[in-house]
Amino acid sequence: MRFVLDTEQRLLGDTLHGLLTKAGTPALIRRWAAGDHDRTLWSALGETGVFALAVPERHGGAGPLPVELVVAAHELGRHAAPGPIVETLAAAALLDGSAAAGPAAEWLPRIAAGQAVVSLGSPGRIRRALDADAADLILLADGEHLFSAVPEGPAVRALDPARRLFPVRQVERLATGPAVPRAAATAYDLAALACAAQLLGLGRALLDVTVKYARTRRQFGRPIGEFQAVKHHLANALTGLEFARPLAYGAALSFGSPDFPRDVSAAKAAASDAAYATARTALQVHGAIGYTDEYDPSLWIRKVRALRSAWGTPADHRARVLAAVPEVRGESPR
């Protein structure tokens, strides 16, 4: 038992952190929101092997590697990287598991290489496809059928302008059979896990920037970080994030076991709460500047609110956890 990242896994995180820092995500997020879907960053992520983590070797990938996926999604969240990244990762699992030999062979190598942007939807679960106008392929999983789809009308206005959400409609059937809902379930769980990891990264970045701000912003002749009310908010934020992280890695390690959906749900519920509480603290501790569109942390704050309910609300996930807890003998505490 060694429940910490190994050297290579840490290296992957460091590499992505370096790449995303250099890319300067705040400007990219704003351009993405304005409809500029430049793929420089996407290709670079592909070259680093991010998308290959969800694609099996026989289709040109290296996956599935759930722990590495969590590492990568954490860094992507930390930099609030725009685009349907989680959706593309989920699409890889969906195509691979749906017994759709033709489309899988066509798309998976391109996904792995960072040459395909994919979005997806699923009636009831994923009602709108993220960044569908930027996607090379849109998948729609509906019961036993897997379709390709196209956007149906313009994006719906949302809190986070960098999340462009489109209603879609099916055009062509790619696969049919019991493998489709099975693959859709795995894809959903992987996406929820990646989303949880993104939330943890978003929360971590917000905590770091807020601590920095609290050390430098002065009122009443001293740094606001000296005030206990501020300290305690930040200590609570750290505590929430610190205890949500092991749930995400624990879930990654149960990939392929019957506990995977339950563990993913535990991670997603905890990460949503921890990141959201951190975002509220970040906003409060920054004061008015944090509430402005111009100040970069706001890009993180609104993304946290969006992801909190994406891929299942905290309540959905809590219900899933409880449904999966086995019966125990007694109901008394000792």
Binding site: L207, V211, K231, A235, N236
Partner: peptide, 11 residues
């Protein structure tokens, strides 16, 4: 919480 803020977060 004081300790976390001062010794872990560096406030």
């Amino acid at each position: 919480r004081n300790l976390i803020a001062e010794r872990v977060l560096g406030l």
